[in-house]
Structures are given as C-alpha cells and as structure tokens.
C-alpha cells in the first residue's frame, strides 16, 4: 500500500464511521419526526433523546475528521467539491446547525411548547441533512463534479437523477440504522413494547431501503453507467454482494429478535455499500483525476498519518469507554 492509499483508506474509514454513527443519529431524528403527537410519542422521543444524548457530539466529529483529512490530503479535490456543490453543502451545514442546536435546546427546556418547537426543528433538519449529503455523494459518484474550482453548473450538479436517488437512499439508511440500534436500546432498558415497535420499524425500513438500493442501481445504469458496471461486474461487485447478503441476514435476525447481532449485520450492509462505491471509483477521485495526482506532498501525508496513529492510541480506549459506559445498565437505581 502506498502512503496515498493509506490516507485514502483512513479518510474512507472516517466517512464510513460517520455514516454508521452520525447517520444513525440523523435517523433518530427521523423517528422523532414520525413519533406522533406529544402524548403518544413521548416514550419514543424519550428513548431517542436518551440514546443520542451522550454520544452524538462524538459521532459528529467523524464528519470534521473526514472534511479535514480531505482538504489536507487532497486539497484540489476538496476545493472542487466544495465550490461546485456550494448549494447542497450550505444547506447541509445549516441543517447540522438546526439539528445539533435544537437537540440541546430541547433537552433543557421544560415547557411543552418549547419542547415541541425545538423538537420539530431537530427532527426536520435530521431528515433533510442526510438528503443533501446523499445528493452530494451522488454528484461525485456520477462524475458530475469536475476538477478545478467552481466549474460545474451549480444547480444541475446536484439536481439530477443519481443525486436524487442517493439523497433518498441516505435518508432511508439513516432511518434504518437508527431503528436497528434503538431496538436494542429499548430492549436493554426493559421497554419491550418499544422494542417491538422499533423492530417492526427496522424491518419495514430495511425492506424499503433494499428497494431503494435496487431502484438506485437502475438509475445508475441509465444515468451513470460507468459506476453501474463497477458495482455489478467490476471491482466493486464483491463488496456490493456482501452488502446485499448482510442486508438479507439482517432481516432474518430481526425476525429472530437477535437485536444485538443485527446491529453488526446492518452496519456491515451499509459499510460494504460505501466501500463498493470506493472500490468502483478507485483510483479516480474526480473525472480524470487520480488520487496520486492530486495528493498532498509526502511530508504532509507522513505527518498526518503519524499524528493520527498517536491519536488513535488515545481515542480508541476513550471511545470504548464512552460507548460501554452508556450501554451498561445503571447500578442500583432508586
């Protein structure tokens, strides 16, 4: 593996982590939005708030990590993407503001009207933000982001069939992951009723996301044939197959109430899809632009990898502690 490939892998790992963890936090907002009236949805909202509270900021940092790695390691690609996808990225950023701030505000609000207002902002921006990110991914995957600064048509670059398909798929994936994770959380907190509800939601969402993925492939075939070939018969196909199998296994596991195991397979299905895309596109980051051509200079990459290596030594155990602490049941309550 070359240094550039290592950095690319680190970048894609960060993006995957963001999709699996941050994505599920957006999905939590999705279920919050559809939890029903204030009275009926109280238990659901409480569960979501309780599960997201301690971890969403840490999950969110994966996005920062990916953005910073991209601009450090492949500066021209970062400039091309941000300048061409100026509109959807601005909207996504505003969505992030609404989501994070309103979540924190709702938590400390005591009055119903405030909780409703902030809750609505939180839930609404949780649904639209992944759509814009998905649309950006679709624009890049279909080769619509040209190299150079601001070379694309600012509307059509993200208003196109592949972007639409990827945007909707992103929302679906977020909702699906959240339902799967929350099922186990509800079960652990001895809320069997809620666990059943979320298991059902996860199954429905799983089937819908599977359908969306198939529909997305058909869109790709017509709109982005190169990526379609890479995913179905090219270098991305083994991973795409893993994704399909993991998705099917997840449905079975949900049916069997293996709520812990299904977390793993559901995450695997999503991760494999992302890596299938990466494998299908490699070594091109943008049209006619390979990673090696636009990467930062050697000393920068070396410094970055070393710093990340040292950082991982601190971060891995800390992150483990965070997740383990809140997955454990409370010692002797009341």
């Amino acid at each position: 593996m070359t240094l550039v490939e290592i950095v690319l892998a680190l970048l894609w790992t960060g993006l995957t982590a963001y999709a699996l963890l941050g994505g599920a936090d957006f999905g939590g907002g999705f279920w919050d939005l559809f939890a029903g009236s204030a009275a009926r949805g109280r238990a659901t909202r409480k569960l979501i708030e309780h599960s997201l509270g301690p971890i969403w900021e840490a999950n969110h940092v994966w996005l920062i990590y990916a953005v910073v790695l991209l601009w450090t390691a492949f500066p021209p690609v970062f400039a091309a993407i941000t300048s061409s996808l100026y509109i959807p990225l601005t909207l996504a950023a505003l969505g992030i503001i609404g989501r994070g701030a309103a979540f924190a505000f709702r938590k400390v609000s005591a009055q119903l009207w405030q909780q409703r207002l902030f809750g609505a902002v939180f839930a609404f921006s949780s649904v639209v933000t992944p759509f814009f990110f998905g649309a950006c991914a679709g624009a890049i995957a279909s080769g619509r982001v040209p190299p150079g600064v601001g070379q694309a048509d600012p509307m059509r670059v993200w208003l196109n069939p592949t972007s639409a398909a990827c945007g909707v798929l992103a929302v679906g994936i977020a909702a699906y992951l959240a339902a799967v994770y929350l099922t186990r959380d509800a079960q652990r907190q001895a809320e069997p009723g809620l666990a059943e509800t979320f298991a059902l939601r996860a199954r429905v969402a799983g089937v819908i996301v599977g359908g969306l993925a198939v529909a997305g492939l058909l869109v790709l075939r017509w709109d982005a044939p190169a990526l379609f070939r890479a995913l179905t018969s090219g270098p991305g196909s083994p991973l795409a197959a893993v994704s399909v199998i993991a998705g099917l296994v997840s449905l079975v596991l949900l049916h069997r109430r293996a709520y812990l195991a299904v977390r793993v397979t559901a995450a695997l299905a999503v991760a494999a899809l992302l890596w299938a895309w990466a494998a299908g596109q490699y070594p091109y980051l943008l049209p006619d632009t390979t990673a090696a051509e636009v990467s930062a200079t050697g000393p920068v990459l070396t410094a970055m990898v070393s710093v990340l290596g040292v950082g991982a030594l601190i971060l891995a155990p800390s992150m483990w502690w965070l997740f383990a602490l809140f997955q454990r049941d409370l010692p002797a309550r009341r």
Binding site: W71, T72, P75, A79, A80, T82, Y86, A296, T297
Partner: peptide, 23 residues
C-alpha cells in the same frame, strides 16, 4: 465547510500546508 465553500482558491492550494494543525 466554509473554508472550502467560500475560499476554494485558498484551500485548494494551501489546504495541505495548514492541514496538520487541523488534523
């Protein structure tokens, strides 16, 4: 985001130079 949304000419050239502290 804005570093790139607003100043791509800066980030596209110098992003790698200031990338280490941001990492």
């Amino acid at each position: 985001f804005e570093m790139g949304l607003l100043w791509p000419g800066f980030m596209g050239t110098y992003g790698q130079v200031i990338g280490l502290p941001f990492t």
